[in-house]
Design a protein around this nucleic acid. Structure first.
Lengths: 342, 342
DNA sequence: TGCAACGGGGTAATCGTTGTCACGGGACAT
DNA sequence: ATGTCCCGTGACAACGATTACCCCGTTGCA
């Protein structure tokens, strides 16, 4: 019944009225502009406090032309790797006083483009994108600072923040070779996926370096999940020329490989997993893994993005995030024939 | 050098000009209003296409008073449980044509409140919050539709979407009792955490139901991570009155328990983990777990949120998301003395 | 025939904030 | 003493889309 039905929202105008200043001055106080006298500042601050004023960000963003957000687009948010990356980026965003818009692009090329365009339509201050299906040439004309991670975008000549897939895969296989293995198999995803291809190339690099044979029957491609890898591994190890070591190119496939090795009692076969997973150290033997730290990738991406936002143009070069090999046992097994002769 | 330095952005006005209509009509087309003649519609659509027009969402949001976004606030984005939940919510958001703002609140009560207020200042259409430290009484006055998940917010009388922690913990311990165990230990986090407390209560419920002893030396509290749990388990199983079964109240602690059991060769001790983890089925024996499906929780939260957004008020009741017990072996081990007598 | 209802369209105000420009007055240098 | 410059401040317009309101013909119906 009170006469003053409180207005829906408190506007800067209301604050200014209460403090006896213009909205402009109130705005100055709210935005930390130094050119305000201490007395005025205090009055405004007090008004803000008592009225519970909060900036309407939609209005601010319209006026400024940019929104205090950055968008991140990943294939799957639930993937622990990307989840950790998002976490790191959110942390950094907090420091920048910016909010984080997350979106997934693992639907189709069309929705992927729509999603990115939608983000741009929101006038995001920056974009971090894991390119998937879409052609990104449309970004050419758009001024939004953008950083790509993990893979190169199709249709756009841009630097990328990524891990050294090829180099690390090579290092892993060399590690196996160093322990005496001459028949090293690979279990991997579809080779049309850039990441998979690079790791596959690294695998070949290592074999070539060591003069080891490259054999098709040692390669299992197209393993999209643990289940595929489970079957593929069975086929690999059941033949007469079974490998003494396996290089699994994704943590997902590693789970399948491990299950198969355990199921068939062949835990004597060496294994290195590209991509770590929890409990890799609980299994016997514990699984040696190459770990790419998502936080590091994310951090590097944010560094790059803040650079772009500051106006530094993309020079087309890639930022390579290092990887590390975690020796746990499975990657240090020696082949049976060597053990016998020892 | 070209004479026409293209204008920064294409506005609705430009589309209208190109199509020879007013902005109002162009707006109608863009927003799918039916009261436009087919011919006009086509002209506008063509203009949109050729100019590459995109709605400026910041302007639209200002005018409408709400932004087409929903905010989700969780303790840790990187936690697989919340990551999966976010993933599900993002999927649902896509259907609603809404973007998702994610934020973490695991910093402090103050930043938690600032984060939520910041979201509200953005005029989000809805909020999904996992309350942590902050007092949420300030939300009382705010019209933004809000749904809380996992825990009850402090300072606000509101329904919640949550799992039945206490009931499920009770079920797990009863499951162990059913297999003959009379000395069941618990490894858990700090009991000041609501979730931990509820699970602890469920543990006691079960013991009481079965007339089993409640002993302090069977309870390891304050295990914040796998490492703590590792040490705590060592203490638990080394005494003279060691338990024959362990109930671990978080997947994180379960990792520590498993490591300790393996390290000390006591894989004969039964174990049920509250919270599943990958490779729980690779370990020997595979770990029986109670799984709370994050997607289900998220989905229920979205159902509730869309209801709120449609104007249905909170009736204060909780939505309970069911859990399921996944029998894998470790929870079905029988105590040594029973085996001996068998 | 008269008139209301409706389809199709336009004009201008509005959302809340902030950049631009202007102004009076003191400090300081010429 | 006069100009220059900076400070604190305010009036005002603009950001781009939406929407309240108005207008003009057609129809349909009494």
């Amino acid at each position: 019944m009170s006469g003053s039905m409180s207005r829906k929202v408190v506007r800067l105008r209301d604050v200014a009225d209460a403090a006896g200043t213009s909205t402009k001055t109130a705005s100055r106080v709210v935005n930390g502009d130094s050119r305000v006298s201490p007395d005025t500042r205090r009055r405004v601050e007090q008004a803000v406090e008592s009225l519970g004023y909060q900036v309407d960000v939609t209005a601010r963003s319209l006026r400024r032309g940019v929104d205090d957000t950055i968008g991140i687009v990943v294939p799957t948010i639930g993937d622990p790797f990307f989840a950790k990356a998002i976490e790191e980026i959110e942390k950094r965003s907090l420091d920048l006083g910016v909010k984080l818009l997350v979106a997934s692009n693992s639907y189709s090329a069309e929705t992927e483009r729509e999603i990115v365009e939608g983000l741009i339509g929101r006038r995001v201050a920056g974009l971090i994108i894991t390119p998937e299906f879409a052609d990104y040439s449309f970004l050419q004309r758009i001024p939004t600072p953008t950083v790509f991670i993990d893979r190169h975008p199709r249709g756009l000549d841009s630097g990328v923040v990524r891990v050294d897939d090829q180099g690390a895969a090579r290092a892993a296989v060399l590690h196996l070779a160093e322990h005496g293995h001459r028949r090293v198999a690979i279990v991997t995803d579809d080779l049309t996926i850039r990441t998979s291809k690079l790791r596959h190339l690294g695998y070949h690099d290592a074999l070539r370096d060591r003069g080891l044979p490259i054999e098709e029957r040692l390669e299992a491609h197209g393993c999209r999940d643990a289940h595929d890898a489970f079957s593929a591994t069975e086929a690999l190890i059941s033949g007469p020329h079974a490998p003494t070591a396996i290089f699994s190119s994704r943590s997902e496939t590693s789970l399948g490989v491990v299950r198969q090795l355990h199921a068939s009692g062949r835990t004597d076969i060496a294994l290195i997993s590209f991509g770590d997973f929890v409990t890799a150290d609980v299994i016997t033997p514990a699984v040696t893994a190459i770990d790419h730290d998502p936080a590091m990738l994310a951090s590097a991406a944010m560094d790059r993005l803040t650079e772009r936002m500051a106006g530094v143009p993309d020079d087309g070069s890639d930022t390579i995030v290092p990887l590390r090999l975690i020796e746990r046992g499975s990657g240090e097994l020696t082949p049976a024939h060597l053990e016998a002769s020892a």
